[in-house]
Design a binder for these strands. Structure first.
Length: 934
RNA sequence: GGGCGCAUAGCUCAGUGGUAGAGCGCCACCUUGACACGGUGGAGGCCCGUAGUUCGAUCCUACGUGCGCCCACCA
């Protein structure tokens, strides 16, 4: 006996364990492989709503395809998340008042991180299981595990040999908190309130020139002033100490007299040239730009073009360096302190023209939150532009498809303008770069130190060193050890870029790799297209010669009810685990799927989750009803050979729902699939089938009752299958009573009976013909019945007939077909609309409420209860509705163009509707007349 | 400066070239033997504006208005 309601708290863990134990999550069978690699969550991560959505959708697809007989691999794993993890462990060490990272050294620290990972890492895996994720956990991988590390090394070395990876000294985004370079993508540009300081740089030797200060209407100067300085403006005054030049546009006549001369760089007391370059915009600011090549990306380009000296001003912490070109008083100061002081000093010298308030775009580290400093450093780069070529082609050629397809544009736009990818990070946690330096700085890139050493031996032998010399070097004698390994690690995304093939065993040619690459679909949010999708595309097309996935399904972001991004600082985070605790995983999953319409963000509200929890309860109670009425699943039951109209109808409806769900899932329309099931279960199966079946099920035993029991159980079991991808727990639990008794639902087959030819669509069919046709007549009959019941109920309610009162019911001039139907369904109608039997009459009795349903009149003689005014109002309203419809149709039909040019079937349909509405209107009018006279 | 998206019921959102839908909320009635996490009935919509295409536009096109997001080096 089923409990009164489903208790997710107690059932979920038990069911999940049973699934895992059964091996259902592992790929099996001979079916077409279906493969998804999970977007690996950070090892430091915990489940947020974005994960919940992302993994729900993946799980829906995996469970769906698994039931359809495909050999499904959902490859799980985690990302080592370089910066995030190092940060967490360092923080923990600080809290425990342990010595700092730098004090214990690299090796010890990395050991500590591994220990942390074993102890507290990967909480998210348990949380994914709570969500019901059907990953093949036996294949769980980690981006730092041995196999994946091998893959990373191999990729790095090969890309280096092919010239895709190189080392370069150039300006990078430097994070002064984490003391590492980061890539462009890890920088968040945010608009902040800043200032725009205008300084005077005096000309050398007191030179002067005439600077126009007023113009006529044609733009010719009319007034000049004599200047002995050039005016520059900056948002970062402290960088002036590193200026190498002042640049003006070559066409800027105002400055023509002083181009080529020098000006004094105040405070630093150096003289710097005034040059021309296309970069300055004459209309912006003063039109003259100070060039700080070592601390600004634009200036850097100008400096390189014009051979301007670069002055590195800051150290790794963004503090002013101890260098002779920096005045002593600024050395050691933080950049913001230096800024203040520079402004004061400039002002003191009378060189501060003005300060404006200005909104400026400031770069912040996405993890550290501190202002990023452009820094001149040596880093490793990937030539992304070249690697992107094939990745672009794969999408152009349709090898990989974005769903919704408008993301294709975003992808192209970024890929076609891609910058070199800085892949080195000055961290300890990550894949250490497999590069070694010789005593002369020469770099040897190899998968192992031995291999690097061999390369070194060859090189230095060629250069004339003897083996003894090299030996001595290697022993650390003379100038030091022969080879020193590069200290840096790779960007975390470098290893995640290999995820679709490294997790399958690459570089080994494993059977899994052969079967499951390329993967079927990647499910992810748009904010990760550049970070991850693009890079997997590059690595996949390069190393596997095939794009890593056929489809990329981009889903929405989950926002709060007000459409705000959820964030800890805003305090509007909804924790999926809290919702799971409260409403069950099924409710949360169904909500997310139902709201996952393509191309739109999801505003999650708890009320919605509650609503879908109620839906689960509804399903549960429908099952309880079946149980009470002994509707047992019969494996021999053949839906194609039922006789009862009601049963034919519900099988017909179930077939439609199955086809709809299947088609929606095949095209990633999760919300349509969920919606179709919701409607079928609640508004068709529960509201009508169960109600209409009650008299039969509670009536006398016989073939009809037997068939209805079996049909009901059959439909319920079909519903459980269809719903399982969305609500795996409750359906699995009910499957124990309504399954095939052989296996768990997770391994059951997707509904596709009884003809194999319709397997693909998921629809039902009978003897090759779609069930829609075979059972169409029954469907029509039950639909008529439902319409009649609804109409009578509506009239009753509007006439304020007490809900409990049993009233007479008269079929007026029914005709043979309706009479037959009334005979068949009389008891049902009596029961569902509370009438005391069905009577026949030639004309409607006086003082009766009249209902027009599909061309026939039915009357409720309410005698003294009837409120004539109310009935008049009701009829008038109905008549008005008909008239409105008829008017609309008449307008159309009167339009020659419509009749001539609209498709014939549309015109015909309108004619038919006109007839129907006219007939209805006439009957209603007659009723109105009668009641008015009565 | 480029690119993308959204404006439909009180709220949150589906949807379609011909008859506008859901969830929640609201109103009335109902402890009917699956279910009050329920049932029955109901109210509620110039489908943002303007112009165009079309026999016909909430849907397609253009423009406008408002809002949101992504990318981009204006010192």
């Amino acid at each position: 006996m089923l409990d009164k309601s489903f208790d997710p708290q107690s059932a979920e863990a038990r069911l999940y364990e049973a699934w895992e134990k059964s091996g259902a999550f592992e790929p099996s069978g001979e079916g077409d492989p279906f493969t998804i690699v999970i977007p690996p969550p950070n090892v430091t991560g915990s489940l947020h709503m974005g994960h919940a959505l992302n993994n729900t959708l993946q799980d829906v697809l995996c469970r769906f395809e698994r039931m359809r007989g495909r050999s499904v691999l959902w490859q799980p794993g985690m990302d080592h998340a370089g910066i995030a993890t190092q940060m967490v462990v360092e923080r923990q060490m600080m809290e425990r008042q342990e010595p700092k990272r730098t004090a214990i050294g690299r090796e010890k620290f990395v050991e500590k991180v591994w220990a942390w990972k074993e102890e507290s890492g990967g909480a998210i895996i348990t949380q994914l299981k709570r969500l019901g994720a059907s990953c093949d956990w036996s294949r769980e991988r980690f981006t730092m595990d041995e196999g994946l590390s091998e893959a990373v090394k191999k990729v790095f070395v090969q890309l280096y040999r092919e010239g895709f990876i190189y080392r370069d000294k150039r300006l990078v985004n430097w994070d002064p908190k984490f003391l590492t370079a980061i890539s462009d993508l890890e920088v968040e540009n945010t608009e902040v309130d800043g200032h725009f300081w205008h300084f005077k740089y005096p000309l050398e030797n007191g030179e002067t020139y005439e600077f126009p200060i007023a113009y006529d209407e044609e733009g010719n100067p009319t007034e000049w002033e004599t200047r002995d300085y050039i005016s520059i403006a900056t948002t970062r005054p402290e960088t002036m100490l590193g200026d190498g030049a002042v640049a003006v546009h070559p066409s800027d006549k105002r400055y023509a007299p002083i181009v080529g001369k020098k000006c004094l760089l105040p405070l630093a007391d150096r003289y710097i040239p005034i040059i021309t370059d296309d970069y300055p915009d004459p209309d912006f600011g003063s039109g003259a730009v100070k060039i700080t090549g070592a601390h600004d990306f634009n200036d850097y380009k100008v400096a390189v073009r014009n051979d301007i000296k670069l002055y590195v001003l800051m150290d790794e912490h963004a503090r002013m360096r101890d260098d002779d070109y920096i005045p002593e008083k600024y050395r050691g100061l933080d950049r913001f302190e230096a800024r203040k002081l520079v402004v004061e000093d400039i002002d003191a010298r009378g060189l501060l023209i003005k300060v404006e308030d200005k909104k400026i775009m400031q770069p912040f580290g996405d993890r550290s939150g501190v202002v990023i400093e452009p820094m001149l450093t040596d880093q490793w780069y990937v030539d992304a532009e070249r690697l992107a070529k094939k990745a672009i082609e794969a999408v152009e050629d349709g090898e990989t498809r974005f769903v919704p397809e408008n993301w294709t544009k975003t992808y192209f736009q970024w890929m076609r303008n891609i910058e070199p990818w800085c892949v080195s990070r000055q961290l300890w946690w990550g894949h250490q770069i497999p590069a070694w330096y010789g005593p002369d700085g020469h770099v040897f890139v190899a998968e192992t130190e031995d291999e690097a050493f061999k390369q070194a031996v060859i090189k230095y032998t060629e250069e004339g060193y003897t083996l003894e010399d090299i030996d001595a070097m290697a022993r650390g004698e003379g100038e030091g050890p022969l080879l020193v390994r590069d200290e840096d690690v790779l960007d975390t995304w470098f290893s995640s870029a290999l995820w679709p093939f490294s997790t399958l065993g690459w570089p080994d040619e494993t059977p899994q790799l052969k079967l499951h690459y390329p993967t079927s679909v990647l499910v992810t949010a748009f904010d990760i297209i550049f970070f991850w999708v693009a890079r997997m595309m590059m690595m996949g097309t390069h190393f596997m010669k095939k794009a890593p996935f056929s489809d990329v399904y981009i889903h929405a972001l989950v926002l709060d009810e007000k459409g705000q991004k959820m964030s800890k600082s805003k305090g509007n985070v909804i924790d999926p685990l809290t919702l799971i605790d409260k409403y069950g995983a099924d409710a949360l999953r169904f909500t997310l799927a139902a709201m996952a319409a393509q191309g739109r963000n999801i505003r999650l509200s708890e009320a919605r989750v509650e609503g879908y929890r109620n839906f689960g309860t509804k399903l549960w109670n429908a099952a309880r009803f079946c149980e009470m009425n002994e509707c047992a699943f019969d494996p021999a039951f053949d839906p194609a050979s039922v006789n009862e109209t009601l049963n034919q109808w519900i099988i017909h409806e179930a077939g439609k729902a199955a086809a709809e769900t299947t088609a929606a899932l095949e095209t990633y329309r999760f919300n349509d699939a969920a919606g179709a099931l919701y409607k079928f279960v609640w508004n068709v199966f529960c509201d009508w089938h169960v109600e209409l079946a009650k008299p039969i099920l509670m009536g006398e035993d016989g073939p009809a009752k037997d068939e209805t029991r079996k049909t009901t159980a059959f439909v319920l079991s079909g519903v459980l299958r269809l719903l399982h991808p969305f609500m795996p727990f409750i359906t699995e639990e009910l499957w124990k009573s309504y399954g095939d008794g052989k296996s768990m639902l997770v391994e059951a087959e997707w509904p596709h009976m009884p003809d194999a030819s319709v397997k693909k669509s998921g629809g039902l069919s009978i003897k090759g013909a779609p069930i829609e046709a075979a059972y169409a007549k029954s469907a029509e009959e039950i639909d008529w019945l439902i319409g009649l019941i609804t109409a009578v109920r509506s009239a009753r309610a509007e006439m304020n007939v007490p809900a409990g009162a049993k009233i007479p019911f008269v079929a007026v001039n029914a005709g043979p077909e309706v009479s037959l139907r009334l005979d068949a369904y009389g008891d049902l109608i009596s029961r569902l609309v509370r009438i005391d039997g069905i009577h026949n009459a030639e004309t409607a009795p006086k003082g009766a409420v009249q209902i027009v349903h599909e061309g026939r009149v039915f009357a409720l003689p309410l005698a003294d209860i009837i409120d004539i005014a109310a009935e008049k109002a009701r009829l008038s309203k109905e008549i008005e509705k008909c008239e409105k419809e008829i008017d609309g149709i008449d307008k159309k039909l009167a339009n020659k163009n419509f009749v001539e040019r609209a498709p014939a079937e549309i015109v015909e349909e309108n004619r038919e509707r006109r007839v129907a509405f006219t007939e209805r209107k006439e009957k209603l009018a007659a009723a109105l007349k009668q009641i008015s006279e009565g």
